[in-house]
Design a protein around this nucleic acid. Structure first.
Length: 871
RNA sequence: GGGCGCUUAGCUCAGUUGGUUCAGAGCACUUGGUUUACACCCAAGGGGUCGGGGGUUCGAAUCCCUCAGCGCCCACCA
């Protein structure tokens, strides 16, 4: 069969993906096998695939494909998130472009636009994951706004409310003036920015004195209700109890004292705006100060602000500064660097604002989740996130779960009077009606008099139950799927949503199911460019994920990403990594071509070189597979991949194939051929999770008739490892290397050498193999001799030399002490080695006996030294 | 301010309880090589005071102290 010289990924990718789905290899239903489950971190429904997704989902696919090969019932549940703020913002923007204002639409009308949008653009990202090769069970695809998923969310809300964990509170919250909604603390990102600090003079009433305050927010002066100084601050003692006048407004406010004021900062005088600062609120509460909210929902100033009413807050700041200056109330302004909070979604500067919102009490329900991670019931990889998690969970604050948006799960709270303190919580309006009419003291009401809360729930309030709700475990706790798949095995996600999502999922798992949602969490790093910068649209340094797949093939991009992605470490991505992946594909492809080019003879005996090579390779393969398994256990996916990469490229191609390949024009014996085919298949199997398309294609070209797809073949077992063979061969490799070096140094090329050796039949394989054969024999003898001489093959010679030299006693007492210490130390090292399970398991008997003898010798030596010393 | 982590080859990083896989890997680089699977290749090679200083130890990349630099999380900042 003619096989093309280089591997073309494009030609085969969609073919195999169709093959896999058509045969249902991805789908999973509960059976007698052990399940292995992963739920996808649901991407935004209207999102598009970026590098972070690619990394994250490649890792999940590697884990799930490996589990499938290992014979688990592998189930990877895909889905998308409605992402309320992000999607609503997109829809609002889209409508605006069409000349439609959200404010002009009814809730229902807006939602129908949002659904149109979602249907048009939604789920594209899932198709993109297919191109990457992700083996999700697509029949289980979920969307957080699906009716069953929504019902679960509502049920959970009702449950928590009944437990008294949900309350409506008037608190300082983060207000996003662009999205016009509140945000949870986690949704606010603080970044240091350059701004200005203004020093403003307030006149003391009925006096010529004035008091100076420092503020970065002069536009809030109309919300001031006091000026505070530290009670111990001698400079301002005289003012305490007096009044000062707000410039422009000429409103008189009291000067009070409070410990919270830092005399060192600014002027030592703090203007108090209780409605727009947490600290000020605290001080305000202590002194019974009035709360003056001076902002509109969109961030413009409201009617309290005289001629600034309706003006945007930053515009007003400029104008107010000008006015203050012109009236002499502005002392000075200085550049100032402070941390500004911005909305994670809209990037808009957030306003602290007092507002009535729904909150979930976290402290009590967080405890089991904290303990679960501390005692490793849920394991974090890498471990460092355990402490970060602990820190957050131990200081957890109540979760603001309401959002002033329409796109999302509408809070199931029904009011039945104008007083919002009178409400019921129910699954729907009919249930609500029943509940209301059961209440004593209320006359019969009908549906028209009931109105539902306008706010929707935070997006994360639906995703925090994702591992439960995708299996319908909230509505039907006893259903087969949920009982079978939950708890899931691994969660793969970025550390940026540790608090948003991971922590809360663990909380919800224990709260609703008394069980963890997953065994392990693998935190990926951030994908950066090769200069270490974050990928961003502005910088234009984020490669188009799909173009990369087109250019290099999905397999190459997958391994390109994984080559340098140790868990939790940021990944500096560069296209050259994909090129490396592509080169690897080609290397493997060509080893297939080599195999296919051979004619197999009838001969049933293999040459001695082949016997040696195959025995060596078997041991080598097993020992590397052992390493790979170990890396997987530690979730060191990159290391596992690199181990396989080297095993295939160096050990299989460069050494094994070079040794066994027949001379030019000759055929290969059956035994060697069959073994080689077997080794190749084993290599492909362990590579399959990383490079599914390539391995499936090659598999199809070499498999037996009775064998089916590689995707459902089996993960190889670790066979016996004969370390003698590995070591002997290592020795041989060294000698061969030296010969090659010698040849290079002398500048004689292989071809020239061949010419010299034989003018009739140029064959460097011949020469190479002769050398191998001779050297292997020599080295086996050499090593056996070593063992017979009671010299451990794992002891480095130099060390032996060192030790034997130090055993020679000098008649110098000052040296004896030192020698004693040396020997004690050496004894310790031998003993620790003999206690080491790994060493005992792997060392040949003779080596062990040898070590024990050394131990005895050392003890003897120590006795002699001690005797000498005591004399 | 509280917490966590990092600093090892030109780059990205491994390096388990201190010793014998301890100074490593991949990439990059240098040199030599294509009539025979693969130049998307083969072979050989150069490169590091393990951030600085101090300590413990017979022995330190590894443990302790200290200094310097970098990063992350939380809180606060008029």
């Amino acid at each position: 069969m003619e096989i093309e010289k280089s591997f073309d990924a494009k030609k085969i990718q969609s073919k195999w993906y169709k093959h896999w789905t058509k045969n249902g290899y991805f789908s999973s239903i509960p059976n007698e096998k052990t399940p292995f489950t992963i739920v996808i971190p649901p991407p935004n429904v209207t999102g598009i695939l970026h590098m972070g997704h690619m990394l994250n989902n490649t890792i999940q696919d590697v884990l799930i494909r490996k589990a499938r090969l290992e014979g688990f019932n592998a189930c990877w549940v895909p889905g998308t998130d409605h992402a309320s703020i992000a999607t609503e913002a997109k829809v609002v923007k889209h409508l605006k472009e069409k000349g439609i204002q959200k404010e002009d639409l009814s809730r229902d009308k807006f939602l129908s636009h949002a659904w149109d949008w979602t249907e048009k653009y939604g789920g594209k990202i899932l198709d993109q994951l297919k191109r990457l090769g992700c083996s999700c069970d697509w029949s289980r695809t979920k969307f957080t706004l699906d009716s069953d998923m929504s019902e679960s969310v509502i049920k959970v809300f009702i449950d928590l409310h009944e437990k008294g964990l949900i309350y409506r509170g008037y608190k300082m919250v983060n207000w996003d003036p662009e999205a016009k909604t509140t945000l949870s603390n986690e949704e606010v990102v603080f970044v240091e920015e350059e701004t200005k600090i203004y020093f403003i003079s307030y006149k003391i009433s009925e006096s010529d004195d004035e008091i100076h305050v420092a503020t970065t927010r002069p536009e809030t002066i109309f919300g001031d209700t006091a000026i505070a100084v530290n009670p111990k601050d001698t400079r301002y003692q005289k003012f305490i109890g007096q009044n000062a006048s707000i410039p422009i407004l000429n409103k008189s406010i009291p000067i009070i004292s409070d410990d919270l004021v830092d005399p060192e900062f600014g002027t030592g005088c703090l203007k108090i705006t209780p409605a727009h600062s947490e600290n000020d609120k605290e001080i305000g509460d202590r002194h019974n100060l009035e709360l003056l909210d001076i902002l509109n929902d969109d961030g413009s100033l409201n009617h309290f602000n005289l001629h600034y009413s309706g003006m945007d807050r930053f515009e007003a700041r400029k104008k107010i500064v000008v006015e203050l200056n012109s009236m002499g109330a502005l002392i000075k302004s200085e550049p100032y660097v402070t941390k500004i909070g911005r909305s994670e979604r809209t990037n808009c500067i957030i306003e602290p604002r007092l507002s009535k919102q729904w909150f979930l009490k976290m402290e009590k329900i967080a405890k089991p989740a904290l303990n679960a991670v501390l005692n490793n019931e849920v394991q974090f990889f890498p471990k460092k996130f355990k402490n970060i998690y602990r820190n957050w969970m131990e200081n957890i604050r109540d979760w603001n779960i309401s959002r002033q948006l329409w796109w999302g799960h509408r809070i199931p709270v029904y009011y039945y009077t104008n007083d919002k303190n009178n409400y019921v919580v129910a699954e729907n309006i009919d249930e609500a009606l029943k509940l209301i009419n059961q209440k004593k003291g209320f006359e019969y009401v009908n549906k028209e008099k009931i109105y539902q809360e306008n706010d929707v729930l935070d997006t994360w309030f639906s995703s925090w139950i994702w591992p439960i709700s995708v299996f319908d475990g909230i509505r039907n706790p006893d259903n087969k799927d949920f009982k079978y798949y939950y708890p899931t095995n691994d969660l793969v996600t970025g550390p940026d949503i540790l608090f948003f999502w991971v922590a809360r999922m663990i909380v919800s798992g224990y709260e609703f199911k008394k069980n963890k949602p997953f065994n392990s969490v693998y935190f990926t790093g951030l994908v950066r460019d090769k200069l270490g910068r974050k990928m961003s649209k502005q910088l234009g340094n984020s490669p188009d994920a799909l173009k990369l797949i087109d250019k290099f093939g999905a397999d190459s991009v997958r391994v390109g990403l994984l080559f340098s992605a140790p868990a939790g470490n940021d990944l500096l991505f560069d296209e050259s990594l994909c090129q490396q992946g592509k080169n690897f594909s080609n290397k493997i492809w060509n080893s297939l071509r080599l195999l296919k080019s051979w004619t197999v003879s009838e001969k049933l005996s293999e040459p001695k070189t082949s016997t040696i090579a195959s025995k060596w390779f078997e041991s080598k393969f097993n020992s590397k597979l052992n390493d790979v398994e170990d890396f997987f256990r530690k979730y060191r996916i990159s290391d596992a991949l690199i181990t396989i990469y080297k095993l295939i490229w160096e050990d299989y191609c460069s050494w094994y194939l070079e040794i066994i390949k027949p001379n030019y024009g000759e055929s290969i014996d059956q035994v060697t051929y069959k073994k080689t085919l077997m080794y190749f298949k084993k290599c492909l199997k362990i590579l399959h999770p990383f490079m599914p398309f390539l391995t499936e294609e090659i598999w199809s070209l070499i498999k037996d008739q009775k064998e089916s797809s590689i995707i459902i073949s089996n993960w190889p077992n670790i066979g016996s490892i004969d370390s003698n063979y590995i070591e002997n061969f290592q020795h041989t490799q060294k000698i061969i290397t030296n010969i090659r070096k010698f040849r290079n140094v002398n500048g004689i090329s292989v071809n020239k050498r061949i010419e010299l050796l034989s003018k009739n039949k140029p064959d460097y394989n011949f020469e190479f193999k002769e050398i191998v054969l001779k050297l292997v024999n020599v080295s086996i003898e050499f090593n056996n001799e070593k063992i017979n001489n009671n010299l451990s093959s794992i002891m480095v010679e130099s060390k032996e030399y060192f030790i034997s030299n130090n055993f020679e006693l000098k008649d110098d007492l000052s040296n004896i002490r030192q020698q004693l210490d040396y020997n004690l130390g050496f004894l310790k090292s031998i003993q620790s080695k003999l206690n080491n399970k790994k060493f005992v398991d792997n060392a040949p008997k003779q080596v062990l006996l040898n070590e024990q003898k050394k131990e005895r010798d050392t003890l003897e030596k120590i006795k002699i030294l001690e005797n000498k010393l005591s004399k």
